[in-house]
Amino acid sequence: MARESFAIGSARVRAGAARNLEIPITRLITGADVSLPVRILHGREDGPVVWINAATHGDEVVGVEVIRRVLAALSPKTMRGTLIAVPVVNVLGVMTGERYLPDRRDLNRSFPGSARGSLAGRIAHLMMTEVVAKCEVGIDLHTGSDRRTNLPQIRADLDDPRTRELAAAFGAPVMLHARVRDGSLRHAARESGATVLLYEGGENWRFDEWAIAAATDGVRRVLGLLGMVDPPDEEPPGPSVECRTSSWVRARHTGFLHLDVGLGQRVEAGDRMGSVSDSFGKTLRLVRAHRAGIVIGRSEAPVVNGGDAVVHIASTDPA
């Protein structure tokens, strides 16, 4: 018996087929329509329904390339289950080169949204009703923001056995037990019953190849674990380091930032990680680790103000 077609928006996708859709969001002042781009791969055989999305923030483009590469290697004729890919959630932000929407709202603080709410609320509602509500697993792709770069990492509820299993299968260097933020896609999706992994890796407005490759391989491993595709032949570089807490070291002086630590580097409390100097090179303050752990994020800004976040350290200490 043939598998039933998959309904999304005003369309139906038959088993063994792929289809690109444009789900209407709003209309510009010029009269042009703005739509949410979606690609559906509806496998011939039964399996889970999974979504993968990127660019919820308009300046975070690593995930767009990840989704392109994942889709290029999949065929609905051989795939099991259904994959919904949304490479650009914040369409207006990407178009204008902005992190947020034209109304300055953070889309990732606007979920689950409302059909009659703000522009952000309407996009969030559309994403929830047309994508998330149809799926059991989701992968939300992000990068660092505001001139920060992140080590490839999965942030998820590691106390949930199913989520932990998928996070471990992804195989990022670090998996961080992270609380959910109200209004985020991860929070709203989890409340609706979905299992969600949030990937962080790379810097905004950059195609960092190392972050793209880590995420592409991770997504493929998750799809393999779910039985949607054959598991990849290669094993992940190593098991993910589990971290339970994280926090930022902040600049204690205004000046020019010089960091000596790299992403993934292990540090001990008190280790020197860099310095803040004046324009003549005089050291004003040293940047020291406030805890032992792994560097999972760092600022790439040359100039910092006192109080700015400069190095993100995750701890493996359960406490």
Results as ranks from 00 to 15, higher is better:
Glu136Ala: 14
Arg162Asp: 11
Arg147Asn: 14
Thr216Asn: 01
Arg190Lys: 14
Trp205His: 10
Val219Ser: 01
Thr129Asp: 14
Ser184His: 10
Arg206Asp: 00
His125Gln: 14
Ser247Asn: 07
Pro232Arg: 09
Arg244Ala: 05
Arg221Ile: 06
Gln153Thr: 09
Leu107Tyr: 09
Ile139Thr: 00
Arg164Leu: 13
Leu166Ser: 02
Met128Asn: 06
Val174Asn: 06
Ile154Arg: 02
Arg181Pro: 04
Phe207Cys: 03
Asp217Asn: 12
Ala133Phe: 03
Ala213Asn: 10
Trp248Asn: 13
Arg148Gly: 04
Pro231Thr: 12
Thr149Asn: 04
Asp159Ile: 00
Met128Ile: 02
Trp205Lys: 15
Pro232Met: 08
Val196Asn: 06
Arg122Val: 12
Ala172Thr: 07
Thr245Asn: 06
Gly238Asn: 09
Leu225Tyr: 00
His142Gly: 03
Pro112Asp: 07
Lys134His: 13
Arg190Asp: 03
Glu136Lys: 11
Asp160His: 12
Met175Ile: 15
Gly183Met: 10
Arg244Met: 11
Val132Cys: 04
Arg109Ile: 12
Ser192Met: 15
Val196Met: 14
Thr245Glu: 04
Asn204Gly: 06
Gly238Lys: 13
Gly218Arg: 08
Thr149Tyr: 00
Asp233Tyr: 13
Trp248Val: 12
Val219Ala: 01
Ser246Asn: 10
Ala214His: 01
Ala115Val: 14
Gly201Ser: 06
Leu223Thr: 05
Pro231Val: 10
Leu225Glu: 12
Leu158Pro: 12
Arg186Cys: 05
Thr163Ile: 14
Met127Thr: 09
Arg162Cys: 03
Gly138Ala: 02
Leu198Gln: 14
Thr149Ala: 11
Asp208Arg: 10
Pro161Ile: 08
Ser246Val: 02
Ser240Glu: 02
Arg164Gln: 06
Val174Lys: 02
Trp248Ala: 09
Glu235Ser: 14
Asn150Ile: 07
Thr216Lys: 03
Thr245Gln: 05
Glu235Val: 11
Arg122Ala: 05
Glu242Tyr: 01
Gly113Leu: 10
Leu223Val: 12
Arg122Ser: 05
Arg190Phe: 03
Arg190Ala: 06
Pro239Lys: 11
Leu223Met: 08
Ser192Val: 02
Arg147Pro: 00
Asp182Trp: 13
Ala189Asp: 05
Arg147Ser: 12
Asp103Thr: 13
Phe170Cys: 07
Thr163Cys: 14
Tyr199Ile: 08
Phe111Val: 06
Ser118Thr: 15
Asp106Trp: 12
Thr129Gln: 15
Leu225Ile: 04
Pro152Ser: 05
Gly171Val: 02
Asp103Trp: 02
Thr129Phe: 00
Gly238Ser: 13
Leu223Asn: 04
Val229Pro: 01
Trp248Thr: 11
Arg116Thr: 15
Gly138Tyr: 04
